[in-house]
Design a protein around this nucleic acid. Structure first.
Lengths: 230, 230
DNA sequence: CGGTATCCACTACGATACTG
DNA sequence: CAGTATCGTAGTGGATACCG
């Protein structure tokens, strides 16, 4: 655990555990349903496995996480961190709009989208979505999402199936849509995002993803800047 | 600002600013109404002034705090951190019950009580409350609180006025009452806390303080442990 | 898959003294 | 009152390789 603040204040006591780097992001992953070490790791790819192991053990010792044969599950205390993570996310989405280039990780984006596919909205059979990000590093330009009403898989190399719809966009734009900074419809209309494929699928695609849970958070009203249409 | 997580996730972006040591405690102080440098400092006495200055500047650069001639005031973005601090406090009070000896700082306690005096409940005229903590370090054993319906002042040496009520208790017990872990009535009945003075004042004293804003947060139900009566 | 081991660089933080 | 200046160290965190 982190250094003590030597204060009896509940905020201080909470932060002794939670203000350490990565800790709340791990909790975020666990709240999102990840349970296994490498599953959590996909959500914090820039964290070394040593440090992840250390943090997970800290959380176990703090009574926030319980380890059941290779599965890390939140205890009631851990589950009750949801309001904290939610409050942080709401604040972050409202007040930290500027994203650096390095913040735009396609793998995290696709992995996140995968988690929020709406099974009821996805067409019958198999749908293959190809995402093209012309502006990213060579190895990161093409991603495939294989959707069925029950499954969703991410591939970073050609799975060999025929592509149903292709999405071409700057990575930043797609992240913006995902975060709710930008609406699908606006982006397509403006030509920022290009959809190719049968019209039915082009129209349907925006409904297949429920977007980030915080996409719908209202943004601060700033004079002269209009909100994205929804 | 702290190191980036290189993630577009709003929680990550928020934590880049907020996960640094002390930062949220400073925000807590500002949310509690402190504005001046040394006023904030009283709430984080173990923080070096250099570091406090640095953190305040970071918060200004982040758009969370605005500096107006020696006063630090929260911007709308800063004010919106209240739900974050609240969520942390609620979690902390529920799940971090154990306090170390070093967490029990009488000065912080008195300073905090001072901030939460209920002017409507305090008797007319001047009331002098002497707090005695027999179990603390020599210089910390006696504190005076001078109350009037409009003012409240803390002294760590004898202000010379006649004492109206004396409170004698282990510091831990009084902190427990303050945090809502323990009820005044229970503590007095059990003899843990001793009140001396006219009955009217002894009875009245528990009503003069509204206690910590989080004292009323319901605690997790644990089998065999009963909640304090209120 | 589920982690350890090792090593280094850095820098954040704490302590203390001092200034306008 | 409102901060700077200085300095040393502990220890975090990053990178990479390796193991059961």
């Amino acid at each position: 655990m982190g250094a003590s603040y030597y204060q009896f204040c509940p905020v201080a006591k909470a932060m002794e555990l939670l203000d350490e780097r990565w800790t709340l992001l791990i909790v975020r992953e666990l709240l999102s349903g990840s349970e296994r070490f490498n599953e959590v790791r996909r959500g914090v790819p820039r964290m070394s496995p040593t440090l992840l192991a250390k943090r997970l053990n800290q959380l176990v010792r703090a009574g926030v996480v319980e380890k059941r044969d290779d599965r890390y599950v939140l205890t009631p205390a851990g589950e009750e961190l949801r309001p904290v993570v939610d409050a942080l996310a709401v604040w972050g989405v409202r007040w930290i709009g500027e994203l650096g280039e390095r913040d735009l990780d396609p793998k995290l984006l696709l992995w996140d989208m995968r988690r929020h596919v709406d099974p009821a909205a996805v067409p019958e059979g198999r749908t293959v979505v190809l995402f093209r990000f012309p502006d990213t590093a060579p190895g990161n330009r093409r991603w495939w999402l294989l959707l069925t009403p029950g499954t969703a898989d991410v591939c970073d190399d050609d799975p060999g199936h025929e592509v149903s719809v292709t999405v071409t966009a700057p990575l930043r734009a797609l992240v913006g849509i995902w975060r709710g900074d930008l609406a699908w419809a606006d982006a397509v209309r403006a030509g920022t995002v290009e959809l190719e494929g049968p019209e039915r699928l082009r129209r349907g695609l925006p409904t297949w993803f429920t977007l980030s849970p915080y996409a719908g958070v209202p943004r601060p009203v700033r004079a002269g800047v209009s909100a994205p249409s929804r």
